[in-house]
Design a protein around this nucleic acid. Structure first.
Lengths: 223, 223
DNA sequence: TACACTTCCTAACAATTGTTAGATTTGACG
DNA sequence: CGTCAAATCTAACAATTGTTAGGAAGTGTA
């Protein structure tokens, strides 16, 4: 369908979110707006189902005009993914920073889990976008890189806690981390803002689980 | 695009999987084969991306012929969903039965979690299909019914354990259940059969987590 | 004013989709 | 064999998709 690409307005793929201080000015805002609209649509309906014409409509443009800002549909989706994981990363790291370096790794972990879940539910991201295998392969690689960096945050917290002797032995922390992240990622599929639970409640419930389990000590020694 | 439906070969929507004993005979097999092919395709690429022409090709037919067996594409997807959740349900219930009624609820829970994960990884279902919100609304309702019945299995096990005094108090078992199921559901996104871990290993790790948590007793009392 | 550059639109294209009507094949039974 | 229904195919349809070429506005500079 497409074979070659002719000359096109060059446009450095800048971080989109934090536009530093040297404002490239003017309607790079349009680019940001397009990403924002695409983001919302992807959140609502999944990365498939999102068409260029719907994005354009949401940004009060016509579909063809998008190609002035992006080279292809894939690049919009990539930008959306980037914005999503990047945002979560920043939110989590900020939460960790706010806990302070003197805090316990477990407290920082709780803060991180809270931030992660809050962002996930607010932006409704993980459940829709992290289904990486569903993405066309071309988008997968770049996205998984970011995903790994994000996962490393939590891995570091767990490793730190272990190093300080706060954790029981016999656990595969990598598995524990992925189980935990999966549990939180999946929250978006069942959580209702109208219910009695706040996102922090859910995160804390997981943290309690990690802390001591649900089983009464003494009952059924497993593992 | 479509407004009305003319007469069409009637075909009772039979359970598809267990064809009882009164074999409606003959190429209802074709229907089953179509579902099977669709199932595989959905597993591989997600319920979008699966086209009638690909299903037909996989079943060595032409796209138009599918309409002899199904009224629409939606009905194929629905059949696939039904087959998926139904299969998981049967696998889990069988695992529970095999544990025996004399077993501890926690042992039955472990068996159920194992069976759930095994089915999930084998059929690669949850990660692809349970993203219910992504489904067109018409398919959602019926599927969520089945999903609720499936979730009830695990809810019952937890409730039973609680009734027998095996669980610590202060937990929202509903949340715990959904966190746990989410954790397992998400395994399909990161699990690799080539790695050192078996599905049962992962399920057991979660069970250990539920049992006693990862935190050394005495460190950082949370909640 | 005119010029040049940026931004967007119009109008189409080729491809693919779900779907359908009608013809054709298959297979069992007389 | 012939007959009739079941099962599949052929060939198209309307709609929608990503994409593109070329033109039309907008916006500032000389």
């Amino acid at each position: 369908m497409k074979i070659d690409r002719p000359a096109r307005p060059e446009r450095a793929t800048l971080p989109v979110e934090d536009a530093g201080r040297d404002r490239q000015t003017k309607a790079d805002k349009t680019r940001a707006r397009l990403i924002q609209v695409a983001k919302r649509l992807v959140q609502e309906d999944g990365s498939d189902r999102v068409t260029l014409r719907r994005i354009a409509a949401g940004a009060k443009m016509k579909a063809g005009s998008i190609y002035y800002h992006f080279d292809s549909r894939d690049e919009i989706i990539r930008a959306v993914l980037e914005s999503g994981v990047g945002g979560a990363r920043m939110a989590v790291m900020q939460a960790i920073d706010e806990a302070g370096p003197a805090s316990s790794p477990l407290d920082r972990l709780r803060a991180a889990l809270r931030a992660h879940l809050a962002y996930t539910l607010q932006e409704h991201f993980s459940s829709r976008l992290k289904a990486i295998r569903r993405l066309p392969k071309r988008l997968r690689d770049h996205h998984m890189k970011q995903e790994r960096a994000y996962a490393a945050i939590f891995a570091d917290l767990l490793a730190e806690a272990q190093k300080k002797g706060l954790l029981r032995s016999g656990f595969n922390l990598s598995v524990v981390r992925m189980l935990s992240m999966g549990a939180l990622t999946w929250v978006a599929e069942w959580y209702s803002p109208d219910g009695p639970l706040s996102p922090d409640d859910v995160a804390d419930e997981l943290m309690r689980l990690l802390a001591g389990g649900i089983v009464e000590p003494g009952a059924s020694p497993i593992g």
